[in-house]
Design a protein around this nucleic acid. Structure first.
Lengths: 189, 189
DNA sequence: CCAGTTGGCTAATGCTTATTAGCCGACTCT
DNA sequence: AGAGTCGGCTAATAAGCATTAGCCAACTGG
């Protein structure tokens, strides 16, 4: 763990707690025991710190989604695994996910476009999963788009309220939310 | 009342689009055709503008919730109506709801405490609704807390993606999300 | 043992910002 | 008409901020 990693971790925590705009380079420096200007010996800029968090988060989510969906063709099982991966990431990396969702407005080009494109593809993946299930007569929803929005939003919510030391474990949330997703789409098993 | 309301509306729109911290008084002034400093002839401060939005939003939500739940004792119907009110508010007043959720970090005391307290009571209302249904054997969930988080998060999501001129109408979202909520808690009707 | 690099520091630079002061024209009421 | 208020304006105030410049001590590798 290098100093640079410490800085990234401190920035992540501060961005989560008070937001990108309200976090100063001096704050980040103080969190790792140095002065604000010294940070520039390790990172390019404050904006770069944000960009790293955002692009890394979307990349991780995409990778997990692909892996989750790769090993079965059954619509119900695919949706369950995709939802579980989604929720598990939002519980386990709640700071990254929280910042990734909340601070898009502070991300500048060219990273903004990249992240938005990745996000659109991620959403499309869920919608397709649901559409396939509906076409196969396994899911029963009026609008696949609404259902996919709903499932994705559930995960984002997890990043907001989940606590590692809370009374609900990560596994409990993952399992229950997987169930919620299947109930949502009216899966017949 | 014209000017002051125009200013509040402009501030709401700008806070939604670029966030509280990134919105300047000059921006808000420009949106209503005057200079930044002139705003102080109508409002006390930028922070006051935010506080009005936040407290007003929570108050409206609480009122709607109480009304929705008042006219029936059936657990399923109560949860459906509460969810519909929740979702309808988030669709119809998406800017208020969006800012209300996203900018809590920028709200200062004493308004912060007030808003957090109201929000806690609002959440407790939903949890109680679900607990009652579970106790009556009408709902089937492992954790009422998880289910209430899930339903509330769905509404917040609506405020993010809903568009008045989109292809999905407010009524469609309200109805479908009401169904989602009942499916989520495994309501037996 | 010394040249170079690394990673700190303080001071300066060049903004941007909320808010206040103080001025003034236009309208209102008597 | 004239006193007062209303609602603009520009200029000043007093910060706060990201980033750069330039300095220096400690390590490091040959």
């Amino acid at each position: 763990m290098s100093r640079t990693d410490d800085i990234r971790a401190a920035a992540l925590e501060l961005f989560t707690g008070r937001g990108y705009e309200s976090t100063t380079m001096a704050d980040i420096g103080a969190a790792v025991g140095i002065r604000g200007p010294s940070l520039y010996k390790h990172v390019a800029s404050k904006q770069d710190l944000l960009a790293q968090i955002m692009t890394g988060t979307m990349q991780d989510l995409m990778d997990l989604h692909r892996t989750a969906v790769a090993t079965t063709a059954d619509p119900t099982e695919r949706l369950r695994r995709a939802t579980e991966a989604h929720v598990r990431y939002h519980a386990r990396h709640r700071l990254e996910a929280f910042v990734g969702n909340r601070e898009i407005r502070s991300l500048e080009e060219p990273h903004l476009g990249e992240v938005l494109a990745k996000r659109a593809r991620y959403e499309a993946g869920f919608r397709e999963l649901i559409n396939t299930g509906v076409a196969a007569g396994r899911f029963h929803v009026t609008s696949a788009r609404l259902a996919s929005y709903a499932i994705l939003d559930l995960g984002m919510g997890v990043a907001v309220w989940f606590r590692e030391d809370g009374e609900i474990t990560e596994d409990a949330v993952v399992w229950e939310y997987g169930e919620f997703a299947l109930r949502l789409v009216g899966a017949t098993d």
